[in-house]
Nucleic acid binder design. Structure first.
Lengths: 222, 222
DNA sequence: TAGATTGTTAATCGATTAACAATC
DNA sequence: TAGATTGTTAATCGATTAACAATC
């Protein structure tokens, strides 16, 4: 539900997998908290919310956690993703090494431009007309958009209409799913590189300068 | 300070620029709130925090807002960024169209591998040995990391040591600035594509299924 | 047993919102 | 003036944390 909460889940899961590979058999809430940067109380609260229980003295069983987190995070169903837009950004995603280690499979690419429709990599690239069939036949739920900004919105509509429920958008426009409004059946995550950089510039410029000082002055007044 | 707050600032700024280009001369807190999806009260609070004041009946002056936001977000100093790692991801960033529209200038690339050191695009690519000189001479504060995961950490150290204060990391490892600990002089923003996709899978899988239901049952008990 | 750790409740904290006096 | 909008205070809300009883 909550974004921070989901982020923690993913971190727990990764950490737990690492601990298991190191041979740990149990772990305490304070270890987990230290490692992901939260208080032990929050770890226990989160686990309690997820109905994961530990032993009053022995902490949490690693094997149980691994198993439960795989269920919670849907790791037992295949993590298949398609990509729409196989230009430069799309092509680098097809070669992104992070997917392999995360057990996410980029299974197919789609593109309007026939120039990009080729099997230059190990991932097949089809024309947009094949999208609907592929998605329904392979029960794909998540897709990546890597098309130019002006095509992004219509590509999104198309994807939603064929059944995609989650979208990671790299096009430099902020996409929202408007069709079904609030009750939108598609989750969209925008990765806006320009926006991220603007954040950074702002943070760097205010890191140790007047703005912080101004706020402190203001805070003291209160 | 607050991440949400900074995100809003960037949204305000973009919106205000758009409104100015449409010929608006003033705008009200409720217009701004509607457009960026927050309450008018929060808009007024934010503006108040930033010492931006409006007229009791005439709203906020667009020209004033444009000018002030450019100052607040550091838009009057050049938004120059360097890139370390000019492999596939790096190269697609060099061609990323979002930078142009955001007025961010990717001014140079650096790479360890001499194969990537060439001027294939309009942006020059240097060897890593040139990094320090370039950064100091051009007073660069922000950089992008697009190297393989196992090189990311040492590249970060190098960048921080030559004076980079903000980093956008595309390597599939979560980077933290450890050297100076909490008092870290470098802000790091990790763009972890695998993590984003995992979020999506999780959200899609729980969108309308048991987990939400379970929580609701639990909430009712309370 | 004594010590340690969970699970949960109540307190805290911070961000957002509602409400309204001030005023253009 | 009457109406509309700001600026700010107090209330609300939700998430995090502290604390501690239960218990292994």
């Amino acid at each position: 539900m909550n974004k921070e909460f989901i982020l923690r889940l993913t971190k727990y899961k990764r950490l737990i997998h690492k601990l298991k590979s190191l041979g740990f058999e149990r772990v305490f809430s304070n270890n987990l908290g230290d490692a992901i940067g939260v208080t032990p109380a929050l770890v226990r609260k989160d686990f309690s919310t997820l109905h994961l229980s530990g032993n009053k003295r022995g902490g949490y069983n690693i094997d149980m956690l691994v198993e439960e987190f795989d269920i919670i995070l849907g790791r037992n169903s295949p993590q298949n993703v398609i990509l729409v837009g196989c230009g430069r950004i799309g092509q680098s995603l097809m070669n992104y090494p992070g997917f392999v280690s995360d057990d996410i499979h980029l299974v197919a690419g789609f593109d309007l431009d026939p120039i990009n429709v080729k099997d230059s990599t190990s991932i097949p690239v089809y024309g947009m007309d094949k999208l609907e069939n592929y998605v329904t036949e392979n029960d794909i739920k998540v897709g990546i958009i890597a098309v130019p900004g002006d095509e992004a919105s219509s590509v999104l509509d198309k994807m939603v209409s064929v059944g995609i429920r989650g979208v990671l958008n790299f096009a430099p426009v902020e996409l929202k799913c408007q069709k079904y409004d609030c009750d939108c059946p598609c989750v969209i995550q925008n990765v806006n590189i320009g926006l991220e950089l603007e954040h950074l510039f702002y943070q760097v410029s205010t890191q140790d300068t007047d703005f912080t000082a101004e706020r402190e002055v203001k805070d003291k007044k209160e």
